[in-house]
C-alpha cells in the first residue's frame, strides 16, 4: 500500500502509477456529477457543445452534496459519495470523451468502466460512504455551481479541495478491480455459509 498525494490536473503517466489498495489524497479541482449531470454532459458532447468546465485531468465525484447558501457564497455542509453503480452506464464514454483521471464514489463500478480506465488511464477512488462531514471539511471552497436546474443533489458543483481523502484505489488503470475481487471471494464463501446454515446448495 502506497499513499499518493496528487494535484489536479493529473497526467495519464501519474495516474498509471497507482495500483489497487493504494491510498490517494487529491488537492485541486473536483467536480460533482451524478446520474443527470452525466447524462447531460454526454448529450452536450454529442451536440459538440462545450461543458461548463474542461474535465481533463480532474477528479469527478459521484456526490449529491448538501450545500448551504451564505450571501453570495455556497458552503459545503455534507458531501459524501453516492452509489457509483448507477453511473456505470455512462462512465466509459465519460472517461473517453472528457479525459477524467479520477472517479470518486462508493460501492465500486463494473467491467465496462474498469475497461475504460485501463484503456484511457483513470482510477476509481472509493471514499467511505456516509462520511460526509469528513469530505465536506476537505472542500476549501465552492468555486461555482452549474446546472442547478437539476436540483441541489444532481447539479454540477465545482469544488476546490485540499487533501481530499482517504481514497482507497479500488479500480486501477491496469484492469484490477478490488470490489469484484471481494465479490468473487464472497461468492466462494457462499457454499460454506449455506453449509453452516444447514441449507442445500
Amino acid at each position: 500500500m502506497t499513499v499518493y498525494k496528487l494535484k489536479t490536473p493529473i497526467s495519464e503517466e501519474e495516474i498509471r502509477k497507482l495500483k489497487v489498495n493504494d491510498v490517494l489524497y487529491i488537492t485541486g479541482i473536483m467536480v460533482t456529477a451524478r446520474d443527470q449531470a452525466h447524462r447531460r454532459a454526454l448529450e452536450y458532447f454529442k451536440q459538440g457543445k462545450p461543458l461548463p468546465i474542461s474535465l481533463e485531468g480532474l477528479a469527478v465525484f459521484h456526490c449529491g452534496p448538501l450545500m448551504k447558501r451564505e450571501g453570495e457564497k455556497w458552503i459545503s455542509v455534507a458531501a459524501g459519495p453516492t452509489t457509483s453503480t448507477r453511473m456505470d452506464v455512462f462512465e466509459d464514454e465519460f472517461i473517453k470523451n472528457f479525459k477524467v483521471r479520477v472517479i470518486i464514489g462508493k460501492g465500486g463500478m463494473g467491467r465496462k468502466t474498469t475497461g475504460a480506465m485501463a484503456r484511457y488511464g483513470a482510477v476509481y477512488g472509493a471514499f467511505t460512504g456516509g462520511a460526509a462531514v469528513l469530505a465536506a471539511k476537505a472542500v476549501r471552497s465552492v468555486r461555482t455551481v452549474e446546472w442547478l436546474d437539476l436540483g441541489m443533489a444532481e447539479a454540477m458543483w465545482i469544488l476546490e479541495v485540499e487533501e481530499f481523502g482517504p481514497l482507497a484505489i479500488a479500480i486501477d488503470s491496469h484492469g484490477n478491480n478490488l470490489f469484484m475481487e471481494v465479490q468473487k471471494k464472497a461468492e466462494k464463501n457462499r457454499q460454506r455459509i449455506y453449509q453452516k446454515l444447514g441449507l442445500s446448495p
Binding site: G64, P65, V77, A78, T128, G129, G130, A131, V133, A136
Partner: peptide, 22 residues
C-alpha cells in the same frame, strides 16, 4: 473505512452537521 466512519461521526457532532449528506 471504519476509521473514516468513526472520525466522521465525531466531526458531525463537533460541527453540528448531518453525518451523511443523504
Amino acid at each position: 473505512q471504519l476509521k473514516a466512519v468513526l472520525d466522521n461521526v465525531e466531526l458531525a457532532e463537533k460541527y453540528q452537521a448531518p453525518i451523511c449528506q443523504d
